[in-house]
């Protein structure tokens, strides 16, 4: 087996994934409502697991090896978010839209 070095432009600052929001498409946090939109465009609904553990929200997306026209690919992504304190945990819902955005929303307690 042979390793192939990954070349890159030396002058480049490689913090650009974070500059792009790192896959977070939108965040809404107002008095009544909390919503986050996450890129999940390589995953099917059944490959996504959303849990809340106390005030933490955990999102796990995984697909095992699948074949495309070119070869095999597998992916594993884990996200964790601290929900705002006044989120009503019982109202958390998640929905994957047909553009591959996972929307997680909840109402606030008054």
């Amino acid at each position: 087996m042979m390793s192939v070095p990954v070349m890159a432009d030396e002058g480049t600052k490689w913090d650009w994934p974070l500059q792009k929001g790192d896959g977070v498409v939108n965040v809404l946090d107002d008095d009544d409502h909390f919503e986050v939109g996450l890129e999940a465009h390589n995953f099917l609904p059944k490959e996504i697991e959303v849990k809340n553990i106390g005030e933490l929200l955990e999102i796990h997306m995984e697909h095992n090896v699948k074949k495309d026209s070119f070869g095999d690919v597998s992916r594993n992504i884990t996200r964790c978010y601290k929900l705002p304190k006044n989120v009503d945990m019982k109202t958390i819902k998640s929905n994957l839209d047909s553009h591959g955005i996972l929307h997680i929303e909840a109402r606030k307690m008054h």
Binding site: K51, D68, V73, L96, S98, G100
Partner: peptide
């Protein structure tokens, strides 16, 4: 710990990751 169901549009054909060439 509670699991939150991931809902999705029932009419969607969920082969679209492959239709987008899956990152190629």
């Amino acid at each position: 710990m509670s699991a939150i169901e991931v809902t999705a549009d029932a009419a969607s054909t969920w082969d679209w990751p492959l239709q987008h060439n899956d990152g190629v």
